[in-house]
Design a binder for these strands. Structure first.
Lengths: 342, 342
DNA sequence: CTGAAAGCGCTAACAC
DNA sequence: GTGTTAGCGCTTTCAG
């Protein structure tokens, strides 16, 4: 008799391990072994079970398995955006590495606004990820406590300024700003401007930049903030607004990203400002765009994909049972790449 | 007596519903109700339970709950890359919409190579997502069957050329190519070239372009393929290679994306080729870059975020119990946006 | 090498 | 409005 759907011999709504076991004439536990520890099952049994799995189209319920073994084989990743090449690269590399090791990534895009991070992390931790990747450190004390009590390997990337929850891969954003300032000073610049995105790390770079200049007794011709994340449009719009003041004499500007820098560059060329003659421009992030445009943009290199891979390897090592070491707190090196805009 | 860790009065390794129930003096089921259906519990009880939850730092195990209720409240999303603004936009919008509705996104970045899609989908479906977003349609028959047997709402985006598994939001890539050809013909062009990324959909656009021109008795001066995904660098490298042939007489080129188009544009300007005088360029995707660079690039607009949001709303509607309708097969409109490079 | 029993942490279904 | 019972589909543990 055909079932309700009218389809002939339809497979059961969801094939489970007991169905496979019955079909293969073994205990459910043996099916489980064939899947998870095949070397502990005889070749003949394995073959029979495999055939049954194939025939029934069995897809093991990892949720049920995870509940039992207390391992979800999922990891959570939190980034502010993936619209930026930097974070897209981090997420892509991280996700590749984790997937190869059998982990599935739950992605949370947190945005830059301070929305309810506690609710977000609660939703994440409720799914019992085996490990956690977090970008930055703008969480509340309550959230911090929740993360610590989750007692899972956690790596924070993209910053080093706070006491870490667990592991950390990042760098000092203020230091980047300061080093760019030093670099530009060494090139003979004396007039400066800064265009920053409104997120805490971009602002830290702008601050480092400003303070290093202040130490030389120099101020900024313009110091502006655009909503995060930084965009090409924000760069163009900014220069359109400040071109009069900034463009009247040789000036060097630090931008929050190569995207913004490209916007400033494009607007400068459209206005006939010489780059780097009248306006020197430094970006951040070393995106393909900055390397490929004309003139190519001086920037700060950071290895997003490298960070993603390293974060994965930190977590995987911990998941494999290795203890925490001091080396789990890594300062990512960065380099200023001088190109044609300075 | 302190526990093994030596920490004073440390909270249990993991607080569970029975702990909260005991602390509040109620049954576990009542705790569950306070969390999931608060209106069915008296205010006093709710208050007591809430206090216990707070005090113990209870984070409900959604995995266990999901196993019981057969709802994981997770959705899987598969995209070839997130390094491209188009897919980054789709994923970001999709993930926002789903998260607002209480769903967590499991992201799988499949790449463009034909790796083992069956293994990937098996890993995904094993986590029993409540719904599925898939980009494109390059899966094997076995995978297709697996997806159908999962019997969960599924939406395929970014293409319409195949018979869908379930819902679909996309457009005909060959048609896009053909319409760009018509557009360029109408502008008086008679010499053409095409630079395509090597993925099936970009190739379909290139084919549509070629065939529409062939119908007019016109061939292509150059027709090249670069590895997917398309990049700025590939665009520059291509023109460097073919500049002699392509640049000797007025020519119009179709690129797989605005990124590639920007690469071609930049190389053209660097070589002193007039754009659009000598070389006309059309991109695809309507990325910010193409709109903001000088000269701005003619492109095909597609609303990535809109697609992501619509995909989410399709799935959510289905998850809310609404039946499938014909309107679940949507052809996304696209428009040629004429800017300065044609 | 294989199996049986017990239970992971929660919720559906049914009492009361 | 609240509690009890019986699983969800798998793996752990212990026997053989």
């Amino acid at each position: 008799m055909p079932d309700e759907t009218g389809l002939p011999a339809r497979r059961s709504a969801s094939v489970k391990i007991t169905d496979v076991a019955a079909a293969a004439g073994v205990a459910p536990m043996t099916v489980s072994r064939v899947i998870n520890t095949p070397d502990r099952v005889s070749p003949e049994t394995t073959a029979r079970v495999r055939a049954a799995i194939e025939r029934l189209g069995y897809v093991p319920n990892l949720i049920a398995g995870g509940l039992s073994s207390r391992k979800s084989r999922m990891v959570a990743a939190v980034v502010p955006t993936i619209a930026h090449p930097m974070f897209a690269g981090v997420v892509q590399a991280f996700s590749d590495s984790m997937r190869q090791a059998g982990y599935q990534v739950m992605l949370s895009i947190s945005g830059y606004e301070d929305t309810d991070d506690e609710a977000m992390f609660r939703a994440l931790l409720g799914r019992r990820p085996d490990a956690l990747l977090i970008t930055g450190s703008a969480y509340s004390p309550a959230t911090r406590q929740m993360l610590q009590e989750a007692r899972i390997p956690t790596v924070e990337i993209w910053d080093v300024s706070t006491r870490p929850i667990d592991m950390m891969i990042g760098f000092d954003h203020a230091q980047v700003g300061a080093e760019v300032a030093s670099f530009l000073l060494a090139k003979g610049h004396r007039r400066f401007a800064s265009l920053s995105a409104g997120d805490s790390r971009a602002l830290a770079r702008a601050r480092g930049f400003r303070e290093r200049l202040a130490a030389e007794g120099l101020g900024l011709v313009a110091e502006d903030i655009a909503p995060a994340p930084s965009t090409i449009g924000a760069g163009r719009a900014w220069l359109r607004r400040v071109a009069q003041g900034v463009g009247e004499k040789r000036c060097a500007v630090l931008c929050s990203s190569d995207l913004m820098a490209f916007g400033v560059l494009t607007e400068a060329l459209a206005r006939g400002l010489a780059v780097p003659g009248t306006l020197a421009i430094c970006g951040f992030g070393n995106f393909e765009l900055g390397a490929m445009c004309e003139p190519a943009i001086t920037t700060v290199n950071l290895e997003g994909p490298g960070t993603g891979r390293e974060a994965a390897s930190f977590l995987l090592r911990r998941l494999a049972g290795e203890a925490s070491t001091v080396a789990d707190r890594v300062k990512v090196p960065f380099q200023i790449i001088e190109r044609a805009t300075t």
